[in-house]
Design a protein around this nucleic acid. Structure first.
Lengths: 213, 213
DNA sequence: ACAATCCGCCTTGCATGCAAGCTTGTATGC
DNA sequence: GCATACAAGCTTGCATGCAAGGCGGATTGT
C-alpha cells in the first residue's frame, strides 16, 4: 500500500505541518509524538528531524526534543532579498545563452496566471506565481541556485499564511508585472530585470507582512 | 574522553574527507565501512549520511550505499555566480545601515592578508580570503544568505584542491583587489562593488579551473 | 509556609536484531 | 559456448532494547 518509505513520510508530513503552520513555531516535538500517528517508530522520525534541522526548520535540543524554529522578525526581508539576488543572477547568466525555451515556458505560465487571476483563484495564483519565478532560476541551470531557491520557496510558503486573505483585484496587476519581467528576461536586460524585480518583490513584501497582496 | 557525539564525529569526519578529496567523487560508501574506523555503529553513520545528502555532497542509493556526488563540470562557475549574487546583495543592504563595525573588521583582515601574502603563506591566505568575503555576508545579517554562503565556502574548498600549486606573486594583487572591495563596501557603492567583485571572482575562477591563483 | 532535595518520568543517543532488496557469481540446461 | 535461473552475500530500512541525562513534582526538613 504505502510504497514510500517511512522516513520519507515522516519528513514530508512534518514539513508540511511546519510549512502550513499546523505545528506552531516554538513548539516542542518528541519523536514518538510525531511517529505514533503515522504508525512508525522513532528511528525514521529521528531521521526526518535531522533533515529538517539541516533545512533550518527544526532545532534539535540534545535530550529534550525538537523545537520548531519560529519565523524570525526579518525573515520576509531576508527571503525576498535572496530571491532577488538569485533571480537576477539567473537572468544575467541567461542573457548570454539561448532563452527561447524559457520564453515559451513563461508565456505559457503567464496565460495560466491570467486565467487564474480572472477566476479569482488566489491559492492557484500563488502556485502559478511560484512556478513563474522558479522557472527563471531553473532555466539558468545553476544547480546551487536551484537548490537554494527551493528552500526559499518553502520559507515563503510558510510565511504566506498571514497573507492569504487577499484582494483579487491586485492579481491582474501582478500578471502585468510578470509580463514585464518576462519581457526583460527575453530581452536579456539583466539590470532592468533586477530593478523591476526589486519593485515587484516589494509589493510581495508588504503582502507577507500581513497586508493584502 | 570523546565528548562530542558519535553522529557528529561521523558527520565531521566524512565531510572533511569529502572536502579534502580524501574520498573521491563517485565512490560508493557503506555505513559499516565508515563507522568501523571510528568505532561507532551504523546508526550515527546513517544520520551523517542523511545530513551530507541534504547538503548535496552525498547521494543515498536505496539499498546499495552512498555515492559521493562528484563535482559537476560547471560547479566552479555556479559557486562563483552565487557568491557574487549573495555578496553583492549583502553590500546593497549594508549601504543603508551602519558599516563602521564591518569596516574595522575588514581593515583587520586586510592587514592579516598583507602579512600572509608577504610571508608567501598560501594556505593561510586562502583561509583569510574566505574570512574576508564571508565577513561581508555575515555583516549583512541575512540569516539565509549566511547559511547559503557557508555551503558555498564548503564547495569551493572542495574544488580548491586542484589549484593549490599557486604563485605567491599574485597574492599581493589579490590583497589590492580586496582593499578596493573594502573601500567600495565602506562607500556603500553597491553597483561598483558588484562590478569589482565580478572581476575579482573571474580571477578566482581561472584559479579553480586549474591554473595559478 | 517555604525552600531545598530527591525521586521518577520522559526524553533522546546509540547499538543491535531482523527482514527485504539488489548485485554478483555460479551452476545448469540447451 | 551461451543464456537463464538460482543462490549467497552484501547492502540498507526500520523496530526495539538499553542506558544516560534533564526536568518537574512531590516530599521532607526547618
Amino acid at each position: 500500500m504505502t510504497e514510500i518509505a517511512a522516513a520519507e513520510r515522516a519528513y514530508l508530513a512534518l514539513k508540511e505541518g511546519i510549512l502550513t503552520g499546523e505545528v506552531r513555531g516554538g513548539e516542542l516535538l518528541s519523536e514518538v509524538e510525531v511517529g505514533t500517528p503515522l504508525g512508525i517508530s522513532r528511528t525514521p522520525v529521528h531521521e526526518a528531524f535531522l533533515r529538517l534541522q539541516a533545512e533550518g526548520l527544526l532545532r534539535l535540543v540534545p535530550r529534550r526534543g525538537a523545537v520548531v524554529v519560529p519565523v524570525g522578525p526579518g525573515e520576509a526581508t531576508d527571503v525576498l532579498e535572496v530571491r532577488r539576488a538569485l533571480e537576477s543572477a539567473a537572468v544575467r547568466r541567461l542573457a548570454g545563452s539561448d532563452r527561447s525555451a524559457l520564453r515559451d515556458t513563461l508565456v505559457r505560465l503567464l496565460d495560466a496566471q491570467q486565467a487564474l487571476a480572472g477566476a479569482g483563484d488566489v491559492p492557484g495564483f500563488v502556485v502559478a506565481d511560484e512556478q513563474f519565478h522558479s522557472a527563471i532560476v531553473q532555466a539558468s541551470g545553476n544547480a546551487l541556485s536551484i537548490r537554494f531557491y527551493a528552500t526559499l520557496a518553502d520559507r515563503q510558503r510558510r510565511m504566506a499564511l498571514n497573507s492569504i486573505g487577499t484582494r483579487t483585484e491586485h492579481l491582474t496587476t501582478l500578471v502585468a508585472e510578470h509580463r514585464n519581467l518576462a519581457d526583460l528576461v527575453d530581452t536579456g536586460d539583466a539590470d532592468g530585470f533586477d530593478q523591476a524585480l526589486a519593485a515587484h518583490l516589494s509589493a510581495t513584501h508588504s503582502a507577507l507582512l500581513g497586508g493584502a497582496l
